[in-house]
Computed example of a mutant assay.
Amino acid sequence: MDYKDYYKILGVPRTATADEIKRAYRKLAREFHPDKNKAKGAEDKFKEINEANEVLGDEKKRQAYDSLGANYRGGGSGFQPPPGWNFGGGGRGRRGHAGADPGDFSDFFSTLFGGGGMGGGGFGGGGFGGPPEDTRARISISLEDSYNGANRAISLSNGRNLNVKIPKGITSGQTIRLSEQGSNGGNLLLEIEFAAHPQFKVEGRDISCNVNLAPWEAALGTKLPVPTLGGTVELNLPAGTQGGKKMRLKGRGLPGTTPGDQFITLQIVTPPAATDEDRKFYEDMSAHFKFDARA
C-alpha cells in the first residue's frame, strides 16, 4: 500500500494549526462534495480529504501520524508501520462526513489506526453531520444600530457566542455573512430586521416621524426642536403653520452612498380645558376668532 501524505492532501504545511487544518478541510469538502461536484474522481477525492481530516483533525491521531516523521515511507508502496507500532488512540474516532463507513478509508489508515475511525462527534466539537451548508437566521436591531454602526453579541443554538459587526446604513432585508459559522462549516447568513421604534418609522433608508405643536407655536411661529437619529435639530417654523404640514430633512435618514431623508408631519395638539379658567379662555377665543375650522 502507498504512504498517505495527509498534509499534502489538505494543502497545508506540517506546522499548520488546528484552525488552519479546519479551514482547509472545509474549503475542500465544499469543493469536492459529491452532491455538488459531479466531476469524475470528485467522490474519491472527497473520501481522501475526509480521511486526511480524520487524522489531522484529531490530536491523538495527528501526534501518532507525525511520529512517523516527515519523510517516512517504510518502503514506498510497501508501506508498513515502524516496528512496535501500536496506536493507543482510544478506539473509535470522529465521523468525517455523513454516511461514512470504514470502507471509505484507505488500507494505509486501517493499518495505522485499526480501521475503526468512524464515530459520532465532529471537528472541534462543532460536528460534521453532512456537507457544509449555509444557515439562515434573523437578527433584530435598532435604527440607531444602523445609523451609527454597532457590535452585537449573539448566542447560537450550539451554545457558541459571536460578536457581530453591524455596518452603518444596513437596511431591513439585507444580510450579514459570517464565514464558516453555519451548519457543518457553512456560512451563517443573518437577515436584518428593525425592531419597532418609539419615534420613527422606516422605509428603505428614509425615516419618518410626527412632531407635535401647541396652537400658539403654530399660530405665532417658533424654533421647533425635532428629534433625528443623529440628535435633536431646530427648525424655524413660520407663523401660521397648519397641522398636517409635511417637512423634509435631507440626508437625515439612514446613511449610505445616497443617504436617506427624514420626513416630518406636524400635528397641532390642543391643551385640555381642565378648569373653569381654561374653559373661560377657550370661550373668549371662540368669541374673538370668527373662525370655522370646517369651512
Rank of each mutant, 00 (worst) to 15 (best):
G99H: 15
K246G: 07
N158M: 04
F32E: 00
T111P: 01
N158I: 07
T257L: 14
K40G: 06
N50G: 15
E144L: 08
R62Y: 03
G93M: 11
K38E: 04
I176W: 08
N163H: 07
F200G: 00
E133M: 14
Q181I: 03
S172C: 08
G75L: 07
Y3Q: 10
F105R: 15
R252Y: 08
F87N: 08
V202I: 04
E31Q: 11
G253Q: 01
G126T: 00
L178Y: 09
Q199V: 12
S106M: 12
A274D: 09
L28W: 06
P198G: 05
L188G: 09
L235I: 13
A295F: 02
K61C: 13
K280Y: 13
E283F: 03
K201M: 05
F289V: 14
H288C: 07
L178H: 10
L68Q: 01
N161Q: 14
G122P: 02
G76W: 12
I264Y: 05
W216V: 15
R138S: 11
R205Q: 11
I207Q: 05
E193G: 05
G120N: 09
K250T: 14
R279F: 07
D44G: 14
R136D: 01
G114L: 09
F263A: 11
H288P: 04
T17N: 11
T232E: 02
S106P: 12
R26K: 00
D292W: 00
A42N: 11
G173E: 14
D35E: 13
S183Y: 06
T270S: 10
K61R: 15
R152N: 05
R252W: 02
R294L: 12
K8Y: 00
P225L: 03
E191A: 00
N151G: 06
Y3M: 09
K27R: 05
G89H: 02
E51C: 01
A64V: 07
I170L: 05
E234N: 00
T111W: 04
V226D: 02
R160T: 08
H288W: 11
